[in-house]
Computed example of a mutant assay.
Amino acid sequence: MSRIGKRPVAIPSGVTANIDDRVLTVKGPKGTLSMGLTDLVEYKLDDAGITVTPINQTKKSRSFWGMQRTMVANLVDGVVEGYSKTLEISGVGYRAAVKGKVLNLQLGYSHDVNLDIPEGLEVKTPDQTTIEISGIDKQSVGQFAAEIRQWRTPEPYKGKGIKYRGEYIFRKEGKKK
Rank of each mutant, 00 (worst) to 15 (best):
G91V: 01
R69C: 14
L115K: 10
D116T: 10
V41G: 10
G161T: 06
T70D: 10
A145Q: 04
G91E: 02
P8V: 04
G93W: 00
Q139F: 11
V102G: 05
E155C: 09
E81V: 05
G31E: 01
P154K: 01
R3H: 07
P29K: 08
G36E: 08
N56K: 07
I11E: 10
L105W: 03
E132K: 12
P156E: 07
L115F: 09
E132N: 08
L115T: 01
K138Q: 06
Q57T: 03
V102D: 11
G28P: 06
V102T: 07
E122G: 12
V80I: 06
A10M: 02
G100H: 14
K30S: 01
H111A: 09
S2Y: 07
N114T: 02
N18H: 07
T70Y: 07
I136L: 08
K59N: 11
V72N: 09
K99A: 13
L103Y: 05
V76M: 07
K124Q: 13
K175T: 08
R171W: 02
Y109M: 04
K85C: 03
M35P: 08
S110C: 04
Y164I: 02
G166D: 03
L107D: 07
L121S: 14
L24M: 07
E122D: 14
V80A: 03
K59H: 12
V23N: 05
K138F: 10
D77G: 12
F144V: 04
E81C: 10
I169L: 10
M1P: 06
L33P: 13
I117H: 10
D46N: 15
V76G: 08
G28T: 00
K163I: 04
S2L: 08
G166Y: 01
V80M: 02
V41L: 05
I133H: 05
Q143M: 06
D77F: 08
I133M: 04
G159F: 02
P156D: 13
S110Q: 05
G82I: 01
L121R: 09
G100S: 08
G161C: 10
V76F: 10
K175R: 13
V23Y: 02
G82A: 04
G135T: 04
M35G: 11
K101A: 04
E167H: 14
W65K: 06
G82P: 14
Y94M: 13
K101G: 05
K30Q: 13
V41C: 09
A48G: 07
M67K: 14
L37K: 06
T70Q: 12
K160R: 13
A96L: 03
G120N: 06
L107W: 00
L75E: 11
Y168E: 15
A97K: 13
T129L: 02
G5V: 00
V15P: 11
N74I: 04
N18Q: 11
G93F: 06
V80C: 13
I131Q: 11
L87H: 07
R95K: 12
K176T: 13
F64L: 08
S90Y: 00
A146R: 13
D112C: 03
G166L: 03
I131V: 14
Q128E: 14
K27C: 09
G31M: 05
K177L: 11
K6A: 05
K30V: 01
D47G: 13
F64S: 10
S110W: 00
V92G: 06
I55W: 03
V23E: 12
V26S: 09
I148F: 05
Q143R: 11
K124L: 14
M1V: 09
V52Q: 04
G14K: 00
I4E: 10
E173T: 14
E42N: 12
